[in-house]
C-alpha cells in the first residue's frame, strides 16, 4: 500500500514541478497583446441570441488578431453570474465580456452587487428596441386606442414578453409612466422569454407583448401579429410603417443592447488593440449581413461613448425600478 502511494506521490510531484518549469519559462517574457487564447465570457446560454452574436465576433476577432478567441457561456441569475465572472477576471485583456442590457439593472433588482462602474468599455454593436405588438384581430388600431382602453379599464389588459423585471417588462413600465398611466393598471404575465410570450399572444392568453420587432418577425410578416409602435428614437428600417413612441407624443425609448467590456484596470494599449479591431469588424459587410439575417439591430458606440451610454442606462432604469418597487 505505502509503496504504491509513494509512487503516485512521486509522479504527482514530478507533474507539478514540470508545470512549474513551463510556467516559470513563460512568465517574464515581454508580451505583445494578444499572444494567447482570449476568452469571451457570455452571460447567456449557448445557442441564444447573445451567444450567436458573440460567436460571430469571436470568429472575426480571431481573423483580425490572429489569435484564438473562444466563447465561454456562464449562465444564470438573469445574467448575474456571467457579468460577475467577467468583471472579476484578470484585467489583462485575455478575458473580455459580452455585456448586455441586464448589467444596468442587476444592482437595482438586488441580484448582484455589480454596476456599470465594474467594467471598462470597448464597443457596443447592437441595440433592439421594445415594440408594442398585438394580435392582428385585436380591437386596437393604434397605440392611443390601446392606452385609452387601459385608462378606461384598469387591470383588464395583460402584457407579457419576459420574466418580471426583465427588459421588456421595464420598457412597458417606462412607456406607461411616460404616458401618465399607473403601470399597475396593466398586468404583467411573466414568461421565460420571447418564444413563450409569442405563443401566449397567438393563443389569446395575453393581450400585448413588448418584445422587439425582430423577435416576432415571422408572425408580423405572416400577418398574425401587428406592431402598434416601437420604443426607439428612429423607425426600424425593416418595419418602416411602425411609428416610434416619440412620434406618438410619448417621450420614451427603451430596449436591450449588447457590447464588449473588459475588467477595470485593463491596460489602455490592450483596449486600443481591441477597439481598433472591433471597429474594422463593425465596418465590414459581413457583419452587416450577419446582423440583418439574424434580425439584430446595429448600433455602434465606441469606447467613451459606450461607457457614457451604459452609465446613463444605469440611472434611467434605476429610476424606473425604484418607481415600481421590484
Amino acid at each position: 500500500m505505502s509503496k504504491r502511494v509513494l509512487i503516485v506521490v512521486v509522479v504527482a510531484i514530478l507533474l507539478l514541478v514540470m508545470s512549474g518549469i513551463v510556467w516559470a519559462r513563460g512568465a517574464p517574457e515581454e508580451e505583445v497583446y494578444p499572444d494567447r487564447t482570449v476568452t469571451i465570457v457570455v452571460p447567456w446560454a449557448a445557442g441564444g441570441g447573445t451567444d450567436r452574436v458573440a460567436r460571430f465576433w469571436a470568429d472575426e476577432f480571431q481573423r483580425e488578431l490572429d489569435t484564438p478567441f473562444v466563447v465561454e457561456n456562464r449562465t444564470g441569475g438573469s445574467g448575474a453570474v456571467g457579468h460577475s465572472a467577467g468583471a472579476t477576471a484578470a484585467a489583462d485583456g485575455y478575458t473580455i465580456t459580452m455585456v448586455t442590457f441586464e448589467l444596468a439593472t442587476l444592482e437595482s433588482m438586488g441580484l448582484a452587487d455589480l454596476t456599470y462602474a465594474d467594467f471598462e468599455y470597448l464597443l457596443q454593436m447592437n441595440e433592439d428596441a421594445a415594440g408594442v405588438i398585438v394580435r392582428s384581430d385585436a380591437p386596437w388600431e393604434s397605440l392611443d386606442e390601446l392606452l385609452e382602453d387601459i385608462r378606461n379599464n384598469p387591470g383588464q389588459i395583460t402584457f407579457s414578453g419576459t420574466a418580471v423585471g426583465g427588459v421588456w417588462d421595464l420598457a412597458r413600465v417606462g412607456m406607461l409612466l411616460e404616458a401618465g398611466i399607473d403601470p399597475d393598471d396593466t398586468t404583467w404575465i411573466p414568461s421565460e422569454g420571447a418564444a413563450p410570450a409569442i405563443t401566449d399572444l397567438l393563443g389569446g392568453h395575453v393581450d400585448v407583448i413588448t418584445n422587439s420587432l425582430p423577435e416576432a418577425q415571422s408572425q408580423l410578416e405572416a400577418g398574425d401579429l401587428r406592431a402598434l409602435a416601437v420604443m426607439s428614437d428612429e423607425r426600424n428600417p425593416t418595419f418602416p410603417d411602425v411609428p416610434t413612441l416619440k412620434e406618438l407624443g410619448i417621450d420614451w425609448s427603451g430596449g436591450t443592447w449588447r457590447g464588449f467590456s473588459v475588467p477595470v484596470g485593463t491596460p489602455d494599449a490592450v483596449k486600443q488593440v481591441l477597439i481598433e479591431a472591433g471597429q474594422r469588424i463593425a465596418d465590414s459587410q459581413r457583419f452587416r449581413d450577419f446582423m440583418d439575417d439574424a434580425g439584430f439591430g446595429i448600433r455602434l458606440r465606441l469606447g467613451e461613448d459606450y461607457a457614457e451610454f451604459v452609465e446613463e442606462e444605469h440611472y434611467t432604469w434605476q429610476t424606473i425600478i425604484r418607481e415600481v418597487g421590484f
Binding site: T75, G77, S78, A80, A163
Partner: peptide, 22 residues
C-alpha cells in the same frame, strides 16, 4: 432554489450567485 420567476425574488440561494439560476 434560485430566482423566483414570478417575482424575480431569490429563494434559498444563501447569497450564492451560482444558485440564482437554480
Amino acid at each position: 432554489v434560485g430566482m423566483d420567476v414570478t417575482t424575480g425574488h431569490p429563494r434559498f440561494t444563501f447569497g450564492q450567485l451560482e444558485l440564482l439560476s437554480g
